[in-house]
């Protein structure tokens, strides 16, 4: 086991006073707090910083740590073991920031007993509720228009004889109709087991709608880009357009513009206040193929139409 230099973790001098330690902690906590920093390594860094602060902010605990540090823990490159018969007396001042799994092996080997007793005293011997777990669940748009059951697999951190292990779990979860991006489904008691007789934490499923190859989501409305030929935009047409539940015929009026949005009522996603709409956005596409005849026809059209698409620039 490696000795942890908590002063180095917080970037303070071993002689630093309580105020300097608090300032250093707050600065680092602000940077690495996992609720504001999405970087994958931020949570581990925050735990390291918080663990250091947990020890150094408490006078009794800091004194014990300093004693161990003097005992030889700070020798670089050598493994660390607490002195034989070592037992911490610093029981108090634990504020419930962590569960047992969050502490390093180093911390537990020094303050383990004291930490557990402090926990017990806080919760009247009932132990501490297990931690909540949050996982992202990808949902296809097609799955939001009817109730489905979806298998969800995740890992639960459990402490077995002081060692952190992971238990794999799979649940079959009913996904309600009309679930939307960012919503969270709570499954009570499916998180980390509680300590002692305390209840388990919860499992939160964070819904992420899988990007669809054809449809974009705007609230409860869907948007589909519909490619049309120039003559379809000019003369009008009826085109077949896919929806989440089969195809429909869409009427394009004569003299339509590229970028125009056509509304198809109640073909969007289900919402609390009814069903959203489908918007078809027209995209005029030039044909790939051309020959002398088509070029001649375009020239003829050009002469007849007398159209300057950049007329606005001249104003």
């Amino acid at each position: 086991m490696e000795f942890k230099d908590y002063y180095q973790v917080l970037g303070v001098d071993p002689q630093a006073d309580a105020k300097a330690i608090k300032t250093a902690y707050r600065k680092l906590a602000r940077t690495y707090h996992p609720d504001v920093n999405p970087d994958p390594g931020a949570e581990d860094k925050f735990k390291e910083v918080a663990e250091a602060y947990e020890v150094l902010k408490d006078t009794e605990r800091r004194a014990e740590y300093d004693e161990l540090r003097r005992y030889g823990g700070a020798r670089p490159g050598e493994g660390f073991e607490p002195p034989p018969g070592w037992e911490s007396n610093a029981y108090g001042a634990y504020n419930g920031r962590f569960s047992e799994e969050d502490f390093s092996e180093f911390f537990s080997s020094i303050f383990g007993g004291g930490f557990r007793q402090a926990q017990g005293s806080q919760t009247s011997g009932a132990g501490m509720r297990g931690q909540d777990i949050e996982i992202e669940v990808p949902i296809f748009l097609e799955e939001t228009v009817q109730e489905i059951s979806k298998p969800v697999s995740y890992r639960i951190p459990v402490s077995v004889d002081g060692q952190l292990q992971y238990e794999h779990k799979t649940l079959n979860v009913k996904i309600p109709v009309g679930i939307s991006e960012g919503e969270r489904i709570r499954l009570k008691g499916q998180g980390t087991p509680g300590h002692g007789s305390a209840p388990a934490g919860d499992l939160y499923l964070h819904v992420r709608l899988v990007p669809h190859p054809l449809f974009d989501v705007e609230g409860h409305n869907l948007v589909i880009t519909v490619p049309v030929a120039p003559w379809e935009a000019a003369l009008g047409a009826r085109v077949v357009v896919p929806t989440l539940e089969g195809k429909i015929n869409l009427t394009i009026k004569p003299h339509s513009q590229s970028g125009q949005r056509l509304r198809v009522k109640e073909r969007g996603l289900h919402g609390k206040s009814g069903r959203g709409d489908l918007y078809a956005v027209l995209k005029v596409v030039m044909p790939d193929y051309h020959n002398d005849k088509t070029d001649e026809l375009w020239q003829q059209l050009s002469r007849e139409a007398r159209f300057d698409p950049r007329a606005e620039w001249e104003r």
Binding site: K22, R26, A29, R30, H33, D35, V36, F46, A50, N95, R97, D132, E134, R184, R186, Y204, H206
Partner: peptide
Amino acid sequence: VSWIHKALRLRRDLD
């Protein structure tokens, strides 16, 4: 509820 828990963690951890 998830935002509430986030707020409580921030309040506690950042003091």
